[in-house]
Structure formats: structure tokens, C-alpha cells
Design a protein around this nucleic acid. Structure first.
Length: 408
RNA sequence: CGGGGCAUAGUGAAACGGCUAUCACGAGUCCUUUGGGAGGAUUUAUUCUGAGUUCGAAUCUCAGUGCCCCGACCA
């Protein structure tokens, strides 16, 4: 994409009052626009990142044998009265209408699967969706980290017995870590014991260490297991160690063994007449995006990991008043695109060098390539990784090969 | 939902109760520039909404709304 074509602009100043880094950088760089507290528009650059995170999550869910569906956001009152959750404060309701906006989907997915799962042969089954959730948060905050409308992946599994659920639950746990590893968050994300399980004592959260987080967790350096403050009793529940590290963290995933909590009220029963056993598993897609920004940045801007960067390469043309540079830049842009690289091409002629380079640092694409009068004098371009200080010159004819080599 | 702070151009800020609401950035037009936010000319506002006090309100008062932060809450 040519940067001159991009309708968004960067801003030099931080938005007034925003403290959180993800809100500051994402707004300044034109990844998102804030409509209201906790309500954001995803702009072209931001949407590209959202889609990439979705794809990573989608691949892992498919690998679990889960099938993707898309459930509605408008939920009939009736479904929620069945489980007694119509009057919870999370639910936005449509004034005067028997509908609410979905903040989770047990009340929809349970009767849905009941329609189709007619015998034990159909079990186990798991479905998931990536969809917009609405939650009436008493206090939306911290940019994308806590919103009123946000994109979430929610997976639901149905089993004939507890053992089967237990098995699947472990598989999901692993899949989740694959997701965090893909985003470069694996090292700072901990499986965390938390409250909320209906059948078991704990649910599991996935908590990423960051000061922007809202939770306090206690990490056992030995077990690599963490415990949320809400259920913490002074020692590691696994090994009993009391030598634990207290950290602030943000919840980037949560998995639950729901048991029969929702299958029972909907009378979703197995062959033996008793309710099926159910699990649910969530990942906040847009929260994950905010978390990556919070954990990967410097004073100049964001630093995207390759896997979810809006573009792989930021090609910048600096013509220094020389009219021969721009055509060479165009040419290189075309070549790189044909070779399959995702390129953002800064072809803006009217910008100063400082503006272009500062914009590039702010936007945070992992690889920067500069083509200028200076580099062309050497038949070269300048390569610089966003996270590195130093740059290097590479001959233009060797560029594509070297990029392909680096990609391996 | 409790506490605190704030609300002026697209963004960030300034303006004692008193002149045509000022400046920077951005954006538009023209010209000069080009390796870390360059320079000149010119354009860019219903001061959040409503009521009140006053000869006169961006400024004071009341109410509402919204935003940020702390806390509570949080599948």
C-alpha cells in the first residue's frame, strides 16, 4: 500500500488525558480512532493487525477440530431467562425490546448445538466464533485493554463425560500457548489459576506481564505457574513454594470447565439422560492487540512482531530533491510486491525526512528499507530493523534474495 | 457505582469578567526546500449542552452530558 493513499494521518501529540501506551500510540499512528470510552474504530493499519491475530487464532482453533460459526449479537430475552442471566449488569439491553446485546454466547450456542447433536455418535463437538462482544463495563479503560465493544474469539465444547472434557481442556491450553508464542508473548505469559470454575475449584487464565495490567498474579519460578490474587492463599498451589514473584498482568485468555451449568437449563442431555459436560474458552482479539503494543514499544513508537505487523516492510523514498529517486522507489515497490512481500511504501513527496522516519518509528513495521539519492549512488538500499539501532546497505539486485533468506 | 481531575479548531495548548478568542502542529492553495518533524504567503471555531448572574461570560453559579485517572466490579 502506498502511504499517500492511506486516508489516515499520524499525530505528533499524544491525545489529551490518555495515559496508556497502547491508546497513545495506536491513536497517534492512526491504527484506531476512539469514538467513545471503550469504543473504537479500527482504521486500515489497525484492522490489518486485527485480521492477522484472527488468522493465527483461527488456525489454532481449526487445528483443535473446532468448527467456525458466527452467532448473532442480538439475543432474545427468552434465552437468557432460561439461565437466569437476563438481569446481569454486563448486558446492554435494547430499550423497550425483548433483546439484549451478547456479551458471551452460552445461551445461544447451547440450544444451537442441541438442535443438531442428536446422539452420542455426534460427540464430542466444538464450535467457535470470532465476533464482536458488547459488555456494559462500569469503567472502560486503558485503550483497547478494557472496552465496551470488542472482538473476541469464543470456543465452546460439548462432551459426554468429564474425562473427555478434561482431555480437550488440556489441548486448548496448549493451543492457547501456541497463539501467545506466535505473537511473541510466550515468554511473559503465564498459565494462571483463577476463580470461576463451576465444576472445578479453579479456572485457568492466561496472564501477560505488563504494568498496564489490572490483575495481580503470583508467579512460581519453579512451576512456571501463576496464581491470581483473587484465589491466592500465600503459596504455590502446585508445589507449595512461598517464594513467589508478584507481578501486574493482563488477562489475555480464560478457559473454563462449565460442567452442566448451561446444558442443564436447556436440557441438552446425552444418551444416559443426564446433561452434557461443557467447556468454554475465550481470547480477546483486540485486547491481545493492545497487549502487544503495551509490551513491545520504545519511546518512539510501536515495535510489531513479524507475525502480526500491518506490513512486513516499510519502504521509504527520500529523494533529496532528485527526481530520479521516485521512479526507482516505485520500481522497487512493484518488485517487492510481486515477490509476495507486504509493503507500505512511503512515497509522500511533500514530507520531510524527519517526518517520514518518525512516522516509520511510530508505526513500528519490523523492517525499514530506505531508498535515496545516497543509497542509489551505491546501487543499494538501506535496511534497518525497527528494534535495532544499526542499519546496513544492501545492493538492490541482492535485496530480494536476502529478504527471502531472512524470512526463513 | 464511590472519589478526584478535565472539557476552547482535526490534534495539542493559551486567553484578569471587557478589543475581531491567540499560538503551534496537521490539513488546503502557491512558492522555496529534502538523511531525523525546514521556511514564507494565505485559508481553517456554534469555546460540550441548557439555564442563571452581569452593561458585558471561554472565564462566575447551577444542572446535565462526555472523557481521563484511582477504587469497587469483572466468564
Amino acid at each position: 500500500m502506498k502511504q499517500s493513499h492511506l486516508f489516515t494521518k499520524t499525530q505528533k501529540e499524544n491525545p489529551a488525558g490518555e495515559i496508556s501506551i497502547n491508546a497513545q500510540y495506536l491513536i497517534r499512528a492512526g491504527f484506531v480512532d476512539k469514538l467513545s470510552s471503550g469504543i473504537y474504530t479500527f482504521l486500515p493499519l489497525g484492522l490489518r493487525v486485527v485480521k492477522k491475530i484472527q488468522d493465527i487464532v483461527r488456525n489454532e482453533m481449526d487445528a483443535l477440530g473446532a468448527q467456525e460459526i458466527l452467532m448473532p449479537s442480538l439475543h432474545p430475552k427468552e434465552n437468557w431467562e432460561t439461565t437466569g442471566r437476563w438481569d446481569v449488569e454486563e448486558m446492554y439491553k435494547i430499550d423497550g425490546e425483548p433483546y439484549g446485546l451478547g456479551w458471551t454466547h452460552e445461551e445461544i450456542v447451547t440450544p444451537l448445538l442441541k438442535k443438531f447433536i442428536l446422539s452420542g455418535k455426534d460427540l464430542p463437538k466444538a464450535v467457535y466464533q470470532i465476533q464482536t462482544k458488547f459488555r456494559n463495563e462500569p469503567r472502560a479503560k486503558s485503550g483497547l485493554l478494557r472496552g465496551r465493544e470488542f472482538v473476541m474469539k469464543d470456543l465452546y465444547s460439548f462432551h459426554e463425560n468429564q474425562d473427555d472434557l478434561d482431555d480437550y481442556y488440556e489441548q486448548v491450553k496448549e493451543a492457547y500457548f501456541k497463539v501467545y508464542n506466535s505473537l511473541g508473548l510466550g515468554e511473559i505469559t503465564y498459565l494462571t489459576l483463577a476463580s470461576g470454575g463451576t465444576f472445578s475449584k479453579y479456572s485457568h487464565e492466561f496472564q501477560t506481564i505488563t504494568n498496564a495490567g489490572e490483575d495481580i498474579i503470583y508467579i512460581c519460578p519453579k512451576c512456571k505457574l501463576a496464581t491470581n490474587k483473587e484465589v491466592f492463599d500465600g503459596k504455590c498451589p502446585q508445589c507449595g513454594s512461598t517464594n513467589l514473584e508478584e507481578k501486574k498482568a493482563i488477562e489475555v485468555g480464560n478457559i473454563f470447565k462449565l460442567g452442566t451449568k448451561y446444558t442443564a437449563p436447556f436440557a441438552f442431555n446425552g444418551q444416559n439422560g443426564s446433561p452434557l459436560v461443557m467447556g468454554c474458552y475465550g481470547i480477546g482479539i483486540t485486547r491481545l492487540l493492545g497487549t502487544v503494543v503495551e509490551t513491545m514499544n520504545d519511546t518512539k513508537g510501536m515495535i510489531w512482531p513479524q507475525s502480526i505487523a500491518p506490513f512486513a516492510i516499510h519502504l521509504i523514498q527520500i529523494d533529496g530533491g532528485d527526481e530520479s529517486v521516485a521512479p526507482k522507489g516505485e520500481e522497487l515497490y512493484d518488485i517487492l510486491q510481486k515477490e509476495g512481500f507486504e509493503v507500505l511504501y512511503d512515497n509522500r513527496g511533500e514530507k520531510t525526512v524527519g517526518e517520514k522516519l518518525n512516522d516509520a518509528d511510530l508505526i513500528g513495521i519490523p523492517l525499514r528499507i530506505i531508498i535515496s539519492k545516497k543509497t542509489l549512488a551505491e546501487d543499494s538500499v538501506e535496511l534497518k530493523e525497527r528494534k535495532e539501532e544499526k542499519s546496513s546497505l544492501v545492493k538492490i539486485k541482492e535485496l530480494v534474495n536476502q529478504l527471502k533468506e531472512n524470512a526463513k
